[in-house]
Design a protein around this nucleic acid. Structure first.
Lengths: 139, 139
DNA sequence: CACGGTATTTCGATACTCGAAGCATTGGTA
DNA sequence: TACCAATGCTTCGAGTATCGAAATACCGTG
């Protein structure tokens, strides 16, 4: 017996996500990017060690061929580079270029401005975060 | 100056959404459906008056040609039908077939079982809903 | 050094998304 | 009434996205 609030919560998550993408469309287009390529950029945190293709595919819930395609889009646009992992020469790690870092910074900032979630107060976001984190951690 | 929690909340929403889709993959494939066609089915509530193509496109944040394509996928599979709106003969409304109603019921139920949000308690969902609703309403 | 296993890429097929152009219908206006 | 700009939808063509199967390169073990 599902909780009566669950359908509305799922619908709200979908709506927020789709609208964030929608509102970001102009900014993405100005760099010749798309939701898929931006998500790859998003999960490529310059403050963390460069992830392998495998790790990136897990972060994006896509398979290896798909990630190869997305990576090619980003390298074609000069935003990321592949490098052989010296510890395991089968593996390629993804590095942001300087341009990639700049574009990522700009787009992440725009996304955080435009998302409907930006309408919430600090207090509300502090309430929201642990709840969503618990759902994320449940997997 | 963005709230420090905002990036994590946006990331969590993305993650929950992607994972819901991912976990639903098998169930969708068993009906020859995809995330895009399922979303159309999801927003086609049999309890509400049948929406026009225009309204559907707004609900899905896509444009008219895209919705025409998705609608064709669903009619090809016998799940929805187009009907001329008698009040405005330019407009087509979308009707679920009997099969469409059955498939939708089954998949919505599966989605609500599999989504990471199902791990939250009634109490947590009751806290979550008004926060997300406020973000949704902000647009 | 052979061999099964792993990381990635390539290939081919299907699905998705969009802008531009076209068709039918509507509502306003002269 | 006759026109016509606006509206709702579809078609078309092009680029993007996603996947399964097969190929390639490398790893570790025996």
């Amino acid at each position: 017996m599902p909780t009566p609030e669950l359908p509305a919560v799922v619908a709200a998550v979908h709506d927020i996500w789709m609208r964030t993408n929608d509102l970001l469309g102009q900014a993405l287009a100005s760099h010749n990017l798309t939701p898929a390529t931006f998500q790859a950029l998003w999960v490529l945190d310059p403050a963390e060690p460069p992830p392998s293709m495998k790790v990136m595919a897990e972060r994006l819930y896509c398979n290896a061929p798909n990630l190869s395609f997305i990576t090619n889009q980003l390298t074609d646009r000069g935003l990321v580079e592949r490098a052989v992992d010296p510890a395991d020469r089968r593996s390629r790690v993804l590095l942001l270029t300087d341009k990639g870092r700049r574009v990522r910074d700009e787009l992440v900032r725009t996304a955080l401005e435009k998302t409907p979630l930006a309408a919430l107060s600090d207090e509300e976001l502090r309430q929201l975060k642990p709840l969503l984190d618990r759902a994320v951690a449940s997997g």
